[in-house]
């Protein structure tokens, strides 16, 4: 009885921590993005609200929440609101299977810093990822606007193409690790003393491409394409409802997919890796906190990389994006799969 209570308590705390961190961080990443963009563009960015604009996300949130809730006259109100829920929930749920660090013990209770270590974690990630397409398709349809519809169709086209690619891309690490559980994949990398990026560079690049495409980041941000479609499928949303879509797409999804990339390719919470020899930890002085810091550091690096691309590159056209997916990325992942199958025994030993 007591152990059940403790377990429930632990899970409750985990949920609260993850939700708080993800949504809070998501909001604050807007500030990070604005600052990064500003410095790339040689301007200071938000400076007025708080020190160096530190309170800007709060001000933005307040503004969005207090705005009038506008609804298109001939739209479908139920689907219109459902799209919001469908966008937010799966994106956040992905964090249920993201392992933030190794198992540790507090007050005699063993805690894995992962909400549910299901043995099909990766499957769950991509299943939830595909849910995003429903949100966008519904948002476009329920808005009863041509711009929104075109935007959502574009996005649906991209997701359909890149779902296939991303699934084949992660096959490599899965074969090497021999498991679908995210926690176990990291453990395997530590046991094998190998970050899978060393053996899977192709898969990693393909994964990054697919990640940009799925989250609608430049050069794949055609569903927004402010010059052509104004803001695509969110064009009829207003106030905080409008704010939620970019929050989910650009921050929460980028974060979750970056975290999965770190888990799959960059050895999760493990420090710097020398292939097959071991790990070097320059952050050893942090003691038990070091793995968590490593994890956050890697995710942050990937996120900054995405931002860097976003504020530098122009965008592709829809046919070019899908063409890249089917004609370049997919064959590449097949090649990678064959290579992995050949190389896998070296890693398994």
């Amino acid at each position: 009885m007591e152990s059940l209570f403790v377990q429930l308590l632990v899970i409750g705390i985990k949920i609260l921590v993850i939700l708080g961190v993800v949504l809070g961080l998501g909001a604050y990443l807007t500030l990070v993005e604005r600052k990064v963009a500003a410095h790339i563009q040689r301007r200071p960015g938000p400076m007025v609200v708080g020190w160096h604009g530190l309170l800007q996300p709060l001000a933005d949130g307040l503004k969005l929440i207090t705005k009038e809730d506008i609804f298109p006259r001939a739209g479908n109100r139920f689907l219109y609101n459902l799209a919001l829920v469908l966008a937010l929930v799966p994106a956040v749920l992905v964090f249920a299977v993201v392992p933030f660090g190794p198992e540790f013990e507090v007050f005699g209770v063993k805690v894995k810093p992962i909400l549910t270590d299901v043995n099909v974690g990766l499957l769950l990630v991509f299943a939830l990822g595909s849910m995003a397409v429903y949100a966008i398709a519904l948002a476009g349809w329920a808005s009863n606007s041509k711009y929104a519809l075109i935007g959502s169709m574009r996005k649906a086209g991209i997701i359909v193409s890149y779902e296939v690619v991303i699934t084949f891309a992660v096959m490599g690490p899965v074969i090497l690790a021999g498991t679908l559980s995210t926690y176990e994949i990291v453990q395997q990398q530590i046991n094998q003393k190998l970050w899978y990026i060393w053996l899977q560079p192709i898969a990693f690049v393909v994964y990054m491409f697919a990640m940009l495409a799925e989250t609608g980041r430049v050069p794949f941000d055609i569903q927004e394409a402010e010059a052509e479609l104004v803001t695509g499928f969110t064009v009829e949303y207003g106030g905080i409802k409008f704010g939620l879509f970019p929050l989910v797409e650009w921050y929460v999804e980028v974060l979750s997919l970056s975290a999965i990339a770190v888990v799959l390719f960059l050895g999760g919470w493990s420090p710097i890796n020398i292939p097959f020899l071991g790990f070097i930890d320059p952050l050893f002085f942090l003691g038990p906190l070091s793995p968590f810091v490593w994890f956050i550091l890697k995710v942050a690096l990937l996120f900054l990389f995405v931002l860097w691309l976003h504020w530098t590159l122009p965008r592709y056209r829809i046919d070019q994006i899908t063409e890249t997916a089917w004609k370049v990325m997919l064959p590449l992942t097949f090649v990678n799969l064959v290579l992995t199958a050949v190389l896998a025994p070296i890693v398994w030993r």
């Binding site: 563009q41 301007r43 430049v218 050069p219 394409a225 010059a227 504020w311 122009p314």
Partner: peptide, 16 residues
Amino acid sequence: YALDIGALTIFLYAFK
């Protein structure tokens, strides 16, 4: 033009 094709940064460089 760059803005239309998605390269927002050039827009700000040019305007500077």
